[in-house]
Design a protein around this nucleic acid. Structure first.
Lengths: 219, 219
DNA sequence: GACAAACGCGAGAGGTCGCTCGCATTCTGG
DNA sequence: CCAGAATGCGAGCGACCTCTCGCGTTTGTC
């Protein structure tokens, strides 16, 4: 009984099918990025992939399933690229370093996969999409909270949760600005986003060891 | 120069019509807030207002016009409530005070008019709505930039613009969290949002609190 | 080579949404 | 009081969207 590729589906895919699925997901990614989830039509996705609408529904039961599968694969790629930990932080790492590493990683991932932002940011998603969205959100939040806990061992849990929410929100705001610019401007916004997070978190972790003289020479 | 009510339209409204318009806009506000602009149907708005679809189109040429008019009225209310200046800031006001006042005002307005957030936040808007959205965005940005300029007279214009974008983005992120909570939690998030902005801007205005003797002693 | 299953197609069924149109009702100015 | 404008209605038109269905094609297996 045990061996299976995907799930418990009695559906045997050929190599051609797997290729089509990848092709369709890629097309869906570009369409979602440009028009958003709700505005994206399955016909448009099929057209972008160069197949007929019927073919699309050979592989996905409905439009939502496309986004779900896309989200799952993105999540998987993310875990694969960065490992289980949000950011590997040693016991004496300064905040600056942790923020710098985490932001760089996430920004890089989001720039490589703009769909992620589209699926993340849109509360224009109906039905079961919301669950998936919330799951991802909760995952990220718990990672951030975990990371924060290593910096703030004696903070009340409620404060920790709030700070984590705040950090994620700030990151999303910064990400939007980063994705909206190119080249040097983009880099400048990344720098600003890091500044925001560092300056927000710095006062919370007063007695951290290294007072690194990094960045921002005072004018 | 003749007097006119709305614009150069040869459309004479009766008192009943004005009432219907207000009623429809109110209904549209609740529908937009709950479902967002794109997902909101004109039939739903008419139903919410207790009138027929045809009646709705007696007063608005299309769905977009409803949102536009709603946005205009909100904008007007905002100006009326807070005056032309974003926040009246004296020449020696500390950053803390300016941020505190500005955030309190905006948060109060957004809590009173949740539609504002819905119309603001949704890039799910097609066609000419985007212009209106961008116009509002630009207005807010220039106000913020203006305010920042009074704090940072010698900063390069590019940096000023970037900082203004960042502040608005941070505010929007915080607003989302604030609106997502109630009571004490909400107040805590307001506090956090202020902290974020203050700590972000503080290092940029090093020699600011020259006049106030009881300034912050802590580094 | 033959059979079954997977793949591929595209017209179109079924549904929703924005918006219109013809007609009834209410208001307003003269 | 009455002509005409403003208001109100709701069935329904056309466009579009998700998803289906029947049938032809390709692929894997023996």
């Amino acid at each position: 009984m045990p061996e299976n590729q995907e799930k418990q589906q009695p559906r045997r895919r050929q190599a051609r099918g797997e290729r089509r699925i990848a092709q369709l997901l890629e097309a869906a990614a570009t369409v979602f990025t440009t028009t958003g989830y709700t505005a994206a039509s399955t016909n448009a996705i099929a057209r972008e992939a160069g197949v007929s609408p019927g073919t699309l529904y050979q592989f996905f039961p409905n439009k939502e399933a496309i986004a779900i599968e896309l989200g799952d694969r993105l999540m998987h790629q993310m875990r694969e690229a960065y490992g289980e930990a949000l950011a590997p932080v040693g016991p004496a790492t300064p905040v600056e370093e942790a923020v710098d590493a985490a932001v760089d990683r996430f920004i890089a991932f989001n720039c490589d996969h703009p769909v992620f932002f589209a699926l993340m940011h849109g509360p224009d998603v109906p039905g079961r999409m919301t669950e998936e969205h919330d799951a991802l959100h909760a995952t990220l939040l718990s990672r951030i909270e975990e990371l924060l806990a290593s910096f703030l061992p004696d903070a009340p849990p409620a404060d920790l949760t709030r700070t984590a929410h705040m950090c994620l929100g700030l990151y999303k705001a910064g990400l939007e600005l980063v994705l909206g610019h190119e080249g040097a401007e983009r880099a400048a916004y990344v720098r600003e986003l890091k500044n925001v997070l560092i300056r927000y978190l710095r006062p919370l972790v007063g007695e951290r060891p290294a007072r690194t003289p990094a960045a921002t020479a005072t004018p």
